[in-house]
Design a protein around this nucleic acid. Structure first.
Lengths: 165, 165
DNA sequence: CCTCATTCCTTGAAGCCTAAACTAAACCCG
DNA sequence: CGGGTTTAGTTTAGGCTTCAAGGAATGAGG
């Protein structure tokens, strides 16, 4: 994989807007990093990014999270969480227990095994990200972080409003 | 979906590196935009992002592209392209023809119908991106584009080298 | 010509993902 | 209480995605 969509687009007939070029570059960066993280998660831990993300969400919430809360944090559909959680539960990395006072909801929590496993994965993951972004100076990282904050707000404002609990 | 991983992480115990926060914000921005584009492609054109991307790749290459070339440009596996191309071909949006002198390879090209359809989708897509990024000033966009360029180079340099044709 | 490695593509298994339809529980309110 | 609405989660159909295995054509070197 040596040519990406953005690079290819540079050869396209002109007329593409500024915003489109920015979006394609953003997408390229994310895709490159994400792909490498996926590869390494599989290679070193025989796991996947969604599984890692779900463990990460639970690791940050020691009191447990309902499936719906996980789905909101991960920005994926609720049906999706059902499947990923089922696999993690089958492997003993997470457990479900009823939420007292609400028989609809269930709380997901890390098991001891899950906590141990995630700690290993998480440390490696943090190192990988630092490694991939090592060529960006601290000043640049700060600027990027700030600008991406603006972009995030811009996108959220353009999005249809969500139901507010 | 009101809380994302990045926001949730802000409440996490400290110790997370700078790079990790930047990566999560980058991922959030991309996920937000990509999700909205997917939704609108489905809503307005009853299609998907990979299909749109494949048409876009072919639109930029009037002489046609082999499946392998498409897979490199889209940064996905070759097996993946097989499936998406099969569906697009079944709908008459693209066509395959043998590459003269190499019976292994096939060239994919847009049909007239495919070209027409992509023109509609592409115009809408460009507008959507501009709309979502409208809250980012032109100066900021320029800075973002430049900084993301650095990030892209950083990541590529950290990646295992690819076979060079 | 023959062999072996390479390239192009397809297939199959498994997992991820969504939208939509559905069940069950909880809530609201008259 | 009883009806309608909302919320939590599951299921299903269909598409995307990867990896690994494999078939077919090509090409390079003997």
């Amino acid at each position: 994989m040596s040519v990406d969509a953005e690079t290819a687009l540079a050869h396209a007939p002109p007329g593409h807007k500024d915003e489109l070029r920015l979006w394609l570059r953003l997408l390229t960066c994310t895709t490159l990093i994400e792909g490498e993280i996926r590869t390494r998660l599989r290679r070193d831990f025989d796991t996947t990014l969604p599984r890692f993300d779900l463990l990460a969400a639970l690791d940050r919430a020691p009191e447990g999270l309902s499936l719906g809360e996980v789905s909101r944090r991960m920005m994926v559909s609720n049906g999706n969480v059902t499947g990923v959680a089922a696999r993690l539960e089958a492997e003993g990395l997470i457990e479900r227990r009823a939420r007292p006072g609400d028989r609809r909801a269930q709380l997901l929590r890390l098991t001891a095994k899950g906590r141990r496993e995630f700690a290993r994965q998480s440390a490696a993951h943090e190192g990988w990200i630092a490694e991939l972004l090592a060529g960006v100076t601290e000043v640049e990282r700060g600027a990027l972080f700030r600008l991406l904050g603006h972009a995030k707000i811009s996108v959220r404002n353009a999005l249809p409003p969500e139901p507010n609990p």
